[in-house]
Structure formats: structure tokens, C-alpha cells
């Protein structure tokens, strides 16, 4: 087994989680927990794939996916920001809704065959760096490079710009932000929309780049939920989110690739000769998410850092306390 090839594919697969995680991170930084990531990703994957079939243009597919997923995120925004309902239940219902709508509108798409995908290319010069060049900069989809740009941009935006400061204020102390003239409601709507668009982009990354096609609910296979777990592990920091997302991407690839070869480290590969052992490999990403959550939660307890203070609470003007 060539580990650089596995890692190379792992980066591509981690890009899906990266977009979804950064999107959720923006939404949570503004104080809105959106558990609908899985549903928005399905909407994104379905609409990207079906637009590309209809028009032959994968770029248009990406745009439609981002728009449609952003649009559906506004249902959640309306319910929790304007109607002040419980964010947990509303986010769950968004997952149901997204899955249902994408199943209905995606009916028959699985037999649609091949479509033109987003281009992949290598970055000249950077490919020459030993190992790293091969893993990060050789023959990757254009969206992978978008991911590389997104991480530092998101970090800089949140920590070092004025709108980023407003974003943090809205998530930490909305009534103070309101007193300063920041429109808390509008900001929250906006960042939920950003989160939805990035989840849609994550879905499009699956159906147009990483594992092309539409396989109903199996298209995302719980990655939206892993992304929500990663936000907690990342402690709401984009750089840590990137490490987590790429590590999980590599793990997903490793699980697929480890079952292929006849010989593993000089031994007969047990996963090749006993395919049913593969089910234990399938558990790993989900078990790892739980382990990562335990680590993240313990660290947060020790360092006394935690979620944005207003996460999960509706902002009601004039109500005391918050």
C-alpha cells in the first residue's frame, strides 16, 4: 500500500467535511446551532448532480447547490431566529426535510450515468516538494484548492476583521452587540445562510468530485453529523477544524483501501480473506467521532473554553439576563 496515494485521496475526501465544518462553525459562532447539515448536504449533492446532468456544466451545478442549500437553511433561520423555537428540534427537522426533498427530487438520478465533473489539476512547482507536493498539490480537484484557501480566509475573517468581530459579538453577547447598533437578527440570518451554502458546497464536492453520482441517503452517509462533531472538537477554530476534517478524510480512505490488497505488512490481509471483518472498519469513523468528542469536551472543560456563550439561545430584544 502506498500511503501517499491514500493520503492524497484522503485530502479530497476530507474537503467535504472541511466545507461542512467551516459552514457550521460560522453559524455557531453567530449563536445558531444548525443540526440540519446532513440534510443541507443531501440537498446540495442532489441539486449539483441533477443540474450538471441537465446543463452539462458542473460549475453551474456547484452554484445551484450552494444557493438551494442556503435557501433551505433559511427555513431553520426563520424558525429559530424569528419564531424563537428550539434550535435542536428545528435543526433535526431540517435534516428530515432535506433528506426527504432530495429523495423525492432525486428520484431516478442514480441511474443517470456519468456527467462531466469538476476539473482536477496539479500546481506547478509545489508538486516538487517531496511527499507534501504529492499529497496536497498533485492531481487534486479544484474544490480541494478552494478548501486550502477557505481555511486561512475564515480564520482571518473571524479573528482579525471588523465583521468578524461583530460575528463573535453576536454569538457571545447579543444584547451588547445590539446596543452597539449591530443588527443581531440580520447577522444571524446571514451566517446561517453562509453555513447552508458551505454545506451545499460540501454536498456538491461529493457528487461532482470525490465520489461522483447520486446514491440517495448513502451519498453523505452521516458526514454532516461528523462535521457537527468536528466543530466541537475544533473548539470553533477554523485551523483546528481543517486538521480534524483532513484526518477524518484520510481515515475514510484508509478504511476503503485497506480491504483491497492480498498482503498487508507481510501478513495475509485479514480484511481481504474475511470480508465480514470490514464491518468493524466501517464503525471506525463513527467511533472516532465519539472519541474525538470526548477529547474535545474534556479539553474544553479543563481550559474553561467553550461554545459561543449565546449558542442555542434565541435573542429576544428587551428580555433580561442575556
Amino acid at each position: 500500500m502506498d500511503f501517499t496515494i491514500i493520503l492524497q485521496a484522503g485530502i479530497a475526501s476530507g474537503t467535504v467535511l472541511l466545507f461542512a465544518t467551516i459552514g457550521e462553525l460560522f453559524s455557531e459562532r453567530a449563536g445558531v446551532l444548525n443540526l440540519g447539515v446532513e440534510g443541507m448536504m443531501l440537498i446540495g449533492a442532489m441539486s449539483a448532480f441533477s443540474t450538471t446532468i441537465a446543463t452539462g456544466n458542473p460549475w453551474l451545478g456547484v452554484l445551484v447547490a450552494m444557493f438551494f442549500a442556503g435557501l433551505i437553511s433559511q427555513i431553520h433561520a426563520f424558525i429559530v431566529i424569528t419564531l424563537q423555537a428550539d434550535q435542536v428540534v428545528s435543526g433535526l427537522s431540517l435534516t428530515f426535510l432535506g433528506a426527504g426533498i432530495s429523495l423525492v427530487l432525486g428520484e431516478g438520478l442514480s441511474k443517470a450515468g456519468t456527467v462531466s465533473l469538476l476539473p482536477s489539476f496539479s500546481i506547478p512547482l509545489l508538486t516538487l516538494i517531496p511527499i507534501i507536493g504529492k499529497i496536497f498539490f498533485t492531481n487534486q480537484s479544484v474544490l480541494v484548492y478552494v478548501g486550502y484557501l477557505l481555511v486561512p480566509l475564515a480564520w482571518y475573517y473571524i479573528n482579525h476583521t471588523r465583521p468578524g468581530l461583530h460575528l463573535r459579538a453576536v454569538g457571545e453577547y447579543p444584547s451588547a452587540a445590539d446596543a452597539l447598533g449591530i443588527n443581531v437578527f440580520r447577522m444571524r440570518y446571514f451566517y446561517v445562510f453562509i453555513g447552508g451554502m458551505l454545506a451545499g458546497l460540501a454536498g456538491a464536492t461529493i457528487s461532482l468530485a470525490v465520489s461522483p453520482g447520486w446514491f440517495s441517503e448513502l451519498t453523505t452517509g452521516g458526514q454532516g453529523w461528523i462535521a457537527i462533531g468536528l466543530v466541537i472538537f475544533a473548539q470553533w477554530d477554523p485551523i483546528r477544524a481543517a486538521f480534524g476534517a483532513y484526518a477524518f478524510g484520510a481515515l475514510r480512505r484508509l478504511i476503503l483501501d485497506i480491504q483491497g490488497p492480498l498482503v498487508l505488512f507481510g501478513f495475509n490481509n485479514p480484511f481481504y480473506y474475511n470480508p465480514y471483518l470490514g464491518f468493524f472498519l466501517q464503525m471506525l469513523p463513527y467511533l472516532f467521532t465519539v472519541i474525538v468528542l470526548v477529547i474535545g469536551s474534556r479539553e474544553a472543560m479543563r481550559k474553561r473554553i467553550g461554545a459561543p456563550a449565546a449558542l442555542g439561545n434565541p435573542y429576544i430584544r428587551g428580555e433580561r439576563g442575556k
Binding site: 427555513i75 433535526l92 427537522s93 428530515f96 426535510l97 432535506g98 433528506a99 426527504g100 426533498i101
Partner: peptide
């Protein structure tokens, strides 16, 4: 889908 809409 209908379950999702009902919940929403």
C-alpha cells in the same frame, strides 16, 4: 419528505 414537512 412529508414527515420532514410535518415536523417543520
Amino acid at each position: 419528505m412529508i414527515q420532514g414537512i410535518i415536523l417543520v
